[in-house]
């Protein structure tokens, strides 16, 4: 082994944790969760009552419980001063690349939307050399976005499996009844953009050493996040109940709900992170020099915000 004289002077020890039960517990939880979910979905599909859902719930509980203790351990290690500056940078890199992976996940769905709207859709509607034979399968289907009447309906009429919501039943502003000010996506944009500012204000509060400012703005951010989720719930309710726009109403409903749904799920995750940071802040955690837990949550929050701006343009306006 390299002797000590060969080693670099003044190196702060990199803390490598001892054996840990958390990863294997989390594996058991995650395993039960996905196996249970798979079984549950198959039972739904076959119209069977079964135990899949209970396995999934148990797995979820184990996973969340394990993650709670895992994060608690990591936080305690940091509070005990075990983490060198170098180790803290590992967490920073980790969070950054995790967010990049999330960006790519959304990229897949935005890519699908782009492809359907600009290529597959027009070809399906008979445009261009690739649409030449549309009369063989989808005769007289004309492509417009959003697709409110599916090719299935055009050809098979009432026997269609995919039934669009019908004319005037989109989430675009032109179909908003009650005018632009009753158009929920606009308010959601306002809320989410504001919350990005408030989380930044909270960070400023921490920098200024003002706990009140820090916790106060953080609280406002969490409230705004909850407000966003409530409005999105209302919007989904309107889509399903009033408009007949559902996951099953063709590619417009598919892309609309998958994109906004995954975004909403990420808002929920981000809200949970911020809520935990708020509770930690109440306990007196974080200082200006040592606040990466909070910073990571706020990075995540900004990421969720940016995704929403893309959604607002590509799903609601353009």
């Amino acid at each position: 082994m390299a002797t000590d004289s060969n080693n670099v002077e003044g190196y702060e020890h990199y803390y490598v944790p001892d054996q840990s039960p958390y990863p294997i517990m989390a594996t058991i939880g995650l395993g039960a969760l996905v196996f249970g979910l798979g079984t549950f979905f198959n039972e739904l599909h076959a119209d069977l009552a079964g135990s899949g859902r209970y396995v999934a719930m148990a797995g979820f509980a184990i996973l969340v419980g394990t993650l709670f203790f895992w994060f608690r351990t990591a936080i305690n290690e940091n509070m005990q001063g075990l983490n060198s500056a170098q180790l803290k940078r590992s967490y920073v890199w980790g969070m950054g690349w995790f967010i990049f992976s999330e960006v790519m996940f959304f990229f897949a769905f935005f890519g699908a939307l782009f492809y359907v709207r600009n290529m597959a859709g027009p070809w399906l509607g008979g445009e261009g050399e690739k649409g030449e034979f549309n009369y063989l399968l989808w005769d007289s289907f004309k492509f417009v976005w959003p697709i409110l009447e599916t090719p299935d309906q055009v050809v098979n009429g009432v026997k269609a499996a995919f039934v669009g919501p019908g004319e005037g039943h989109s989430m675009y502003p032109k179909d908003a009844h009650g005018g632009l000010f009753a158009w929920l996506p606009l308010w959601n944009t306002v809320i989410l953009l504001t919350s990005s500012v408030t989380v930044h204000m909270a960070h400023n509060g921490l920098k200024d050493n003002s706990r009140a400012k820090f916790t106060g703005w953080l609280f406002v951010t969490v409230v705004l996040a909850i407000g966003f989720l409530c409005l999105q719930y209302m919007e989904y309710h309107e889509a399903y109940v009033d408009l007949g726009l559902t996951l099953e109403s063709g590619i417009y409903g598919t892309t609309f709900f998958m994109l906004t749904g995954f975004h909403g799920f990420h808002v929920f995750l981000g809200m949970t992170m911020l809520l935990i940071m708020f509770l930690r802040a109440l306990k007196g955690h974080f200082s200006h020099e040592d606040c990466f837990g909070f910073e990571a949550a706020s990075w995540y929050w900004h990421f969720v915000d940016v995704v929403w701006v893309c959604l607002f343009f590509f799903v609601y306006i353009l």
Partner: peptide
């Protein structure tokens, strides 16, 4: 597509298997 009736890969709903 399999379990929740979306039409990503089904032209009947406006999607595309080539997607």
């Amino acid at each position: 597509d399999i379990h929740f009736g979306t039409s990503f890969f089904n032209a009947a709903g406006g999607g595309d298997p080539v997607l």
